[in-house]
Design a protein around this nucleic acid. Sequence first.
DNA 1: GTATTTAGTTAGATTGATATAACAAATGTT
DNA 2: AACATTTGTTATATCAATCTAACTAAATAC
Lengths: 218, 218
Amino acid sequence: MASPTEENYLKALFNLKDEEGKVSISELSSTLEVSMPTANSMVKNLLKKGLIIYEKYKPIELTEEGKKMAALVIRKHRLTEMYLAEKMGFGWEEVHDIAEQIEHINSPIFFERMDKLLNHPKIDPHGSPIPNAQGIIADLKHKPLNEHKPGDAVKLAALAHSSTEFLDFLNSRNLKLGTEINVISVEPFDGSMVVSYNDRKSEGLSAKVCERLLVEFL
Amino acid sequence: MASPTEENYLKALFNLKDEEGKVSISELSSTLEVSMPTANSMVKNLLKKGLIIYEKYKPIELTEEGKKMAALVIRKHRLTEMYLAEKMGFGWEEVHDIAEQIEHINSPIFFERMDKLLNHPKIDPHGSPIPNAQGIIADLKHKPLNEHKPGDAVKLAALAHSSTEFLDFLNSRNLKLGTEINVISVEPFDGSMVVSYNDRKSEGLSAKVCERLLVEFL
DNA sequence: GTATTTAGTTAGATTGATATAACAAATGTT
DNA sequence: AACATTTGTTATATCAATCTAACTAAATAC
Ligand SMILES: [Mn+2]
Ligand SMILES: [Mn+2]
Ligand SMILES: [Mn+2]
Ligand SMILES: [Mn+2]
């Protein structure tokens, strides 16, 4: 079985591939906050276990087996986040740090029970898809808000990144998954947008925020 | 902070003291399923950290600080067991193994939330007391069933040991916490008892079972 | 196209948790 | 009391996960 450390590496490799395409040793080491030699030696270890494909100085790739294991760790993480939010009343900004630890619990019945109690949720509290028990992840291909134009009416469906700071920001603006947003204008200079939602007639959102808000058409 | 390994040692020291009085290296090593040199070196480590009192060849004792830390780990364990049983529908025979892992999660808000959602439970699913947040444990001084005599009417309040096998046995006899038991007779030869409870008019229980059933007078 | 910078690797050390082998102390038995 | 058994200790080794220092390959800049 994979140790907690190995699970964290697999998860990081999976997520970085999604976000950045190719994955390098330096990205891995900074993501996991370890030194490059540490990441390098774990990469050799994962290679030996057949979970990645790797040649010196080349990008790191997960094998099919590695992908599946990564997806199952991500499943444990996201199910936990959903459980914490839905059944224990935690805010979406609180769940990640706890899930980062609980994802390493080795107990299939525990996570199956969460899944059942939650009625087999498809997404976590940040709108990210929960892989199924076979390690298959739905691709929910939402578009970021900044790709929309004035007049578009959309619904907040997910977040591209979900740092605590960003989630606190969204809380302060009362933005939640499901919030219906109308695009009023786009500032060509800096890509910021003016939108309305709920009873807020005119809210300015920076380009950085708009890129991270993943929405679907209404 | 204490590592998961250190937490397991503290917990074992605390529980063994309760069950056996003095705690030796060999008891510790067999309880934790490690070699004696391993237990010996961890004892040195805990000594250095001021969590135990120890002199070569003498019994091991927890310091006040060690006792408090042990009690807080036990609190996390028993709160988790109660949460799993009450909120997630696990049987009392399923909760220990999961709690053995979750007890090492480092997140005060997580365990405080469990405590709150459970309405500050005083006991775990096996009737053992849950230490409070200050590390104080109530002494519920129940007596084992085998110390009772024919004619006594008692209520099952806790279990002296709670191995999966024993819990499976109790399930098979439909014995639960709260079950009201009437002592019909005691066999002087082997200490076995005949009792009645619910609609069972005459159930034989071995001495071994009767020692482990902790009851209170009705 | 050489020089500089960045990224990656190797070597070597450390720490925590574990083990086995060998020996020593304490305890139990006759 | 002597011997045998059990318990505990020390010495030494391994393994996973980490680090720093030194070096090398690749990428970028000029
Ligand atoms: Mn998360
Ligand atoms: Mn993690
Ligand atoms: Mn337990
Ligand atoms: Mn444990």
